[in-house]
Amino acid sequence: MNDTAMPALHLLNKAPSHPRFQACLAAMDPADQLLLLENAVIALVDKTASLPAGTRALASDCEARGLSDKVAASALTDMADMVELTDQFTKIISW
């Protein structure tokens, strides 16, 4: 299986206004998993952002920014879950 077909985990910590935010979304395939960190979590309450289904976000970054009650519980990911995700995906791209 060549590398492009392999599903990837995308770790995105840029705010929506950062060019790399759109670059990440553009690079994602349906089978990929997106995990939002740090500034990127504000995209969850950005009316202009369109995030792939199943997008997850680091719970501590959401709580820090007062977003915990604005995010679906299923999307909130703690550190252990994040480590688990990095174990599940062979291909990991940090944006």
Binding site: S17, N39, I42, S60, A64, R65, G66, S68, D69
Partner: peptide, 16 residues
């Protein structure tokens, strides 16, 4: 812009 997030209630940055 994204600076309005400074004003959001319920922030708890001690967790980071």
């Amino acid at each position: 812009g994204e600076g309005v997030h400074w004003l959001r209630p319920g922030q708890n940055a001690s967790v980071i």
